[in-house]
């Protein structure tokens, strides 16, 4: 990232290879559809490119990219809230998971898909603030301090939001007949 920030365009492919998988997964979690996630992802890289000279040497580029992605998402959200439009059905993240495995029974695969759908639906339903706090702490394994820096808030607030998200997921799993450890009750 430091080399790219200094203007070495030829390292972009390498940088993309390092950032893209986790950043894309983060965008999928931010957005409620794959199309929206793609747009968010593309715009994030564009902004990252335009703002590359502002990269602080030694900073974690992935956390910086997360912060930009969230900023992009919130800007788009505010834009579309002012201009609501009816969109056709799109693939959502619940459909995007591929849970095919060759060493499980069909019943287990259906159960796993149901668990996946339940979690994905509940994540998409909850507020963006709680969802992102949960994603950063539990899925991206950031520390509370790092997540607070990405979100521009305090450590306590991040923990509270993640806790609320966790409680929502636990409640949703329970309602759907799962224990909090992913086992059927």
């Amino acid at each position: 990232m430091e080399r790219y920030a200094r203007g070495e365009d030829r390292v972009f492919e390498q940088l993309y290879g390092l950032l893209a998988p986790r950043l894309y997964r983060f965008c999928l979690r931010l957005a409620t559809s794959v199309v929206e996630a793609d747009d968010c992802f593309q715009e994030t890289f564009l902004k990252l490119h335009r703002a590359r000279a502002t990269y602080a040497t030694g900073a974690n580029p992935l956390h910086w990219a997360f912060a930009i992605a969230r900023s992009v998402y919130l800007t788009r959200l505010r834009y579309w809230r002012r201009r609501p439009e009816q969109l056709g059905a799109t693939r959502d993240i619940a459909e995007a998971g591929d849970l095919q495995a060759h060493d499980t029974t069909p019943e287990a695969e259906v159960a796993a898909q149901h668990l996946h759908d339940t979690l994905a639906f509940e994540l998409s339903r909850m507020s963006e603030k709680n969802r992102i706090a949960y994603v950063l702490l539990k899925e991206e394994n950031l520390s509370a301090r790092e997540a607070a820096a990405v979100l521009g808030t305090s450590v306590e607030v991040v923990k509270q939001r993640a806790h609320r998200a966790y409680q929502s997921l636990k409640s949703a799993l329970s309602s759907a007949g799962w224990s909090e450890y992913g086992n059927p009750v």
């Binding site: 993309y16 997964r25 995007a96 849970l99």
Partner: peptide
Amino acid sequence: ATPSDRPSDWLYARIR
């Protein structure tokens, strides 16, 4: 990670 968690090649081309 699942295959759908990775950005497609055409998305990379668009970004590039």
